[in-house]
Computed example of a mutant assay.
Amino acid sequence: MHPVQIRGPRLALREFTAADTDTDALQGIFGDPETVLHLPFGTRDRATCEQLVAGYLKDAATTPRTAYALAVERRDTGEVVGTAYLWTSGEHAGVIGYALHRGSWGRGLGSETVHLLCALGFRGLGRHRLTADREPLNEASGRVLEKAGFTVEGYARENVLVDGEWHDSVRHALLEYEWQPPEGITLAEA
């Protein structure tokens, strides 16, 4: 499925492009220490973000495609306010992840992003099960996932190594028939 274009009431998920504006937006997210605090890596500079975007473009052209790294864009302004990821796992499962620019927190955009990822996973890719892992201290992300219908399945001890320190994870999961999509989400190839 390429290119991906999924629209919600306020946001859209789309493929990253080679445009400098996408690299700059990604660096604005991943370059902020507070935004990456609960992610499995530290801050990233522009050169690293440029390499990431190049990798995203390569992944998008791979057949069969197993990695979807997408820009989260505000529909009203076209501003990239986040990143969203879906990795397929086996024939029927997928793993999601997301990061929003700190200036977008607390406005319900995380919940909409998760629902857009669910639309991609369940409707677009025919997955039966999606999972998401988060750091235990990232309670806001836990609330976002629970609001979208995910349930906590377990706690993994010291399973992520970041800057020489081991971190725990909380695993959330959602099955296709449990997902209650909100109105206004459309999935189409651009």
Results as ranks from 00 to 15, higher is better:
88 T>K: 11
115 H>R: 11
131 T>D: 15
114 V>G: 07
89 S>A: 04
114 V>Y: 01
105 W>A: 14
90 G>C: 05
110 G>A: 09
95 V>T: 09
128 H>P: 01
117 L>Y: 05
137 L>Q: 15
129 R>D: 11
88 T>H: 01
96 I>E: 00
137 L>E: 15
140 A>G: 14
100 L>V: 03
119 A>V: 06
106 G>I: 08
113 T>Q: 10
91 E>K: 03
133 D>H: 12
125 L>Q: 07
125 L>P: 05
135 E>T: 07
115 H>P: 05
111 S>Y: 03
96 I>M: 09
122 F>L: 01
93 A>H: 01
93 A>F: 00
132 A>H: 06
91 E>T: 09
113 T>V: 07
88 T>C: 03
124 G>I: 02
113 T>M: 10
100 L>D: 00
121 G>K: 10
135 E>K: 09
108 G>S: 12
105 W>P: 13
118 C>K: 06
106 G>Q: 10
99 A>H: 00
111 S>A: 13
122 F>I: 03
123 R>W: 14
115 H>G: 13
103 G>A: 15
103 G>M: 02
127 R>L: 15
123 R>S: 08
100 L>C: 03
87 W>Q: 02
101 H>W: 01
100 L>A: 04
118 C>S: 11
101 H>T: 00
126 G>C: 10
126 G>E: 13
120 L>A: 07
137 L>R: 15
112 E>W: 01
117 L>K: 12
136 P>V: 14
93 A>N: 10
97 G>S: 12
98 Y>E: 00
89 S>G: 00
95 V>D: 13
122 F>R: 02
105 W>Q: 14
106 G>V: 13
108 G>R: 09
130 L>W: 04
114 V>T: 12
134 R>Y: 05
131 T>S: 14
131 T>C: 11
87 W>G: 01
99 A>V: 12
107 R>V: 03
97 G>Y: 03
129 R>V: 14
110 G>W: 08
110 G>H: 10
117 L>T: 11
119 A>C: 09
90 G>F: 09
123 R>L: 08
137 L>I: 05
132 A>R: 04
111 S>H: 08
104 S>L: 01
119 A>E: 12
138 N>V: 15
100 L>S: 03
116 L>Q: 09
101 H>K: 01
107 R>P: 01
140 A>C: 09
115 H>C: 12
89 S>I: 13
130 L>M: 10
140 A>M: 11
113 T>N: 11
112 E>Y: 03
117 L>E: 04
